[in-house]
Every structure is written in structure tokens, then in C-alpha cells.
Design a protein around this nucleic acid. Structure first.
Ligand SMILES: [Mn+2]
Ligand SMILES: [Mn+2]
Ligand SMILES: [Mn+2]
Ligand SMILES: [Mn+2]
Lengths: 224, 224
DNA sequence: CATTATTTTTAGACAAGTTTAAATTTTTAT
DNA sequence: ATAAAAATTTAAACTTGTCTAAAAATAATG
């Protein structure tokens, strides 16, 4: 109703997106320090920005108690997530980028302002439901699938599953997966789990090999 | 050889692009006032920015004498022009935008920083030579075709020509052309020219009609 | 509970880009 | 050539987002 069509700066958008993702993984209020680490800035800068976001009714903020997104803030955060993920799909599907190369560029593209652009891109890409890392893409109205986030590390010995996403999207992790021939859709069977370090011996593409707990905790899977 | 890989801000890039286009249409040094009008800012702001660009060796500047791009400045300006025009091609050819809708969006997209992105886009678009408004697209190495810019207003009675570009890219002008069924590639024959106001009676698509001198001065053509 | 340790906020400062108002310089006109 | 007009630059101030250093509040430890 009172959709004041106010413009967000790139920085404000990045803060909202960070708060959004921290809220999802932490459930409780987002602390100044957590945000500072995520935004690679100082706690004092975060405090200043939080006040500004609170003034614009994008976050609820009480001194020393951290922040949480308001409905307005969440709506905006989801819009940016949608843009980010659709641009990633474009870069991988159309421009032949590898999935480990697109994050930085999408980080910039997500801030392009246009009422029509992202929906046209969505159509052009034939309405993809997930980005190259398996993350769900919010629809035009901001609806987003919340997958249960089953980690490979929680799968039992003898069970099989399919890789549906990565938690860590760092280039080094994705390149490791490339080298191990693990990609979205890959079937994995758990042969054994080492008591000492929780490393797993798995079978994928008819090849057996070991992966550390670090690895298995960053792969999202679906039992099959 | 001393390619100092220094980052330009969006604002600096926009200034360079404006200076570049003003240099082309004016030949002599670009004045503070001209730049201020083009950048929709104040002369005092321009003076400040000019000093910064001069410090970075992007422009030659002498107080009260205006600016001109250095080789370094021109190289950078052409890079931004290349990005702008390739993104415009993408928006029109792939996302089905009309040629009057793309300028604002390309104005933002031209600032995306990536070493590989624009060359991949170029390839994806199959190396277009001109943007949707008929402007030449600089190649990877910064080479750019300099068309002679023959205006329709300079064509003689009885002669025929083909529209190859527009000088004014404003939405209102482009929409007028759409309504008159004039587009890039349209053949035009000059039937007569009115002495009083230099309006032209032309024939296009087997239809005869009049256009003002304002219109004919903003259409680039090639004699046929 | 009292005392550290940690987190968070405040205060003051800085860089980028902008504005208005005043001072200079250049150009134009008489 | 002198005076008026126009263009340009300088000065001072404002905004956004950042930082460091110091103060205040909260959390952790004995
Ligand atoms: Mn971003
Ligand atoms: Mn992603
Ligand atoms: Mn621009
Ligand atoms: Mn164009």
C-alpha cells in the first residue's frame, strides 16, 4: 500500500542480503560482530549502517541486541537474492562460465536497477528454479523454496544420495568438486565413515575415494 | 607497459565517457560548462573531478582552458563505450527490449568490472559491429570505426539513402521513428525540401510524408 | 558478587562526490 | 580600452560510508 519506492544504495542492499543469509543460518538476531565479519568491515561501521536501515524500517534494531529484518527488509533482501541467482544462471548457462567464477560478477550485477530487467532475464533463461550452486531462486513475487538442507555428513553408512547443492560457494571448494567429478546431480554412496575424523569413504561415478568432514559438511544432498 | 591496473569509480568512468563524446562532436577542448551540462551537475563539481582525472593522467587540463583526454583516458573511455553498446545489443537482441528502452540500463551495466565478461558477451552476441542505434562497437583492442556521419538533412532532392544510425537516442525521438516506420536499414528517397523551414518530404516504405529539419538532422544515412 | 574479557556504541576524522556562494579569469560589447 | 557579462575556479559545507580510538554495556569467570 504505502510502497514508498525508495531507492537503496548498493551498500544498503549488500547489508540486507548479509542479514538475510545470517538470519537463515542462525535463526536468532544477527549481532553486530557477525555482520561486520560477513561484510568485511568494522563493527562501528555496522552500527552506523544498522541505524540507517532501522530509520528506513528495513530492520528492527535495539541497542546491544542485534538486528532482524522487517517484512519490508526481507522483501528487499529476497529481491536481491533473486537477481544474484538469476545472473549466475545467465553467466553459467549462456556465457559458459564455470560455477566457481560467477559469484563476484553476480555480486555487482545484482545491483542493476530496472523494473523489467530481471523478469525479462528470468523468462529468457526459461524460469530456472535453482542457481548453479543449487540454491533456490525466488519467484517474481518473492516466494522461495526452503529446502531442508540435508548435509552429506549426516547420511548413514550404506545409504545413497544425490548432490543438490553446496553450502560453501568458494572457488577453492568448487574446484575441488570439479576435480573429484562431483557436481549437482551426482549420485553418492557412503561406503564407510572413519570414527577418528568423520572422514567418509564414498563411491561416485564408480570410483571410491575419501573426503574429509569439512567437505561432507558443505554438500547438500537428497536421499535416493 | 606501465599498465598500473588502477580502478576507476563509476563517476570517473561516466566523466571519461562524456568527455570522449564531447571531444568527438566538438573537436576542440571540452569546456567545464559543456561537461557540467552533459553530466547534469554543477561547474564546480566538474572542476573538482577534472583535477582528479588530471592527477591520474586521464586528461590534460590547464586552468580555464578545458580538458582533453590523454591516450590513457581515451583507452578507458572507449572500453566503457564498448561495454555500453554490447549490453545494449544484448538487451535488444536477447531480452526483446525496444531500442528506446535500453539506454538507462546500459548506463549501469557498462560499469560492471570483470576482465572476461565483456569479451564473453561479445562472443555470445556473435561479435556485433553496431549497437541498436547504429553506433559502431569498438573491438577488443579498442579499434573503432569512425563513420563519416552523413546527415539526412544534407541529402539532395531526388537522391536515395539508407538509415544507418541516429544522432539523438532519446526515447521520444526513437518512438517517433517507430511510429513512422523508420528504422535502421530503412530506404528513404527525398522528394522535396521546403525552403522556409528545411522540412523534407520523403518517401519510405512506399509512403510519402514530411519530416522537420529537427528530424532529418538527427538521422545518419548512407547514399544508395 | 566482583572483576576481567568481549561486544557494542560513540566520537572524531577522512575520502568521494556533490552543492551554494563568493572570488577570479576570460570573453564580449560598447 | 574599459566595462559588463559569462565562464571558471575556490571555499566552505553536506552526504555516504568508512576507519581508529575511547567509552559504555554485556557476558564470562572466578
Ligand atoms: Mn553485491
Ligand atoms: Mn549462487
Ligand atoms: Mn554510466
Ligand atoms: Mn546506443
Amino acid at each position: 500500500m504505502l510502497s514508498m519506492e525508495f531507492q537503496l544504495t548498493q551498500t544498503e542492499e549488500n547489508y540486507l542480503k548479509s542479514i538475510y543469509s545470517l538470519e537463515i543460518s542462525n535463526s536468532k538476531n544477527v549481532s553486530t560482530t557477525m555482520l561486520a565479519k560477513k561484510m568485511k568491515t568494522k563493527a562501528s561501521s555496522v552500527t552506523d549502517m544498522i541505524k540507517k536501515l532501522a530509520d528506513k524500517d528495513l530492520v528492527d534494531y535495539e541497542k546491544y541486541k542485534g538486528v532482524s529484518l522487517t517484512n519490508l527488509g526481507k522483501t528487499n533482501a529476497v529481491k536481491i537474492v533473486r537477481k544474484h541467482r538469476l545472473w549466475e544462471v545467465f553467466l553459467v548457462n549462456k556465457l559458459d562460465y564455470n560455477w566457481d567464477e560467477v559469484h563476484e560478477i553476480a555480486e555487482q550485477l545484482e545491483h542493476i536497477k530496472s523494473i523489467s530487467l530481471i523478469d525479462r532475464l528470468d523468462k529468457y533463461l526459461e524460469f530456472p528454479t535453482h542457481d548453479p550452486h543449487g540454491d533456490p531462486i525466488p519467484d517474481k513475487d518473492g516466494n522461495i523454496e526452503h529446502h531442508k538442507n540435508v548435509m552429506l555428513s549426516s547420511i548413514q553408512i550404506g545409504d545413497s544420495c544425490v548432490v543438490i547443492g553446496v553450502k560453501d560457494s568458494s572457488s577453492s571448494f568448487l574446484k575441488f568438486l570439479d576435480n573429484s567429478n562431483i557436481r549437482l546431480g551426482s549420485a553418492i554412496k557412503i561406503n564407510s565413515i572413519e570414527d577418528f575424523d568423520n572422514s567418509m569413504n564414498i563411491e561416485s561415478n564408480n570410483i571410491s575415494f575419501s573426503i574429509s568432514n569439512q567437505i561432507s559438511k558443505n554438500l547438500f544432498v537428497k536421499k535416493s
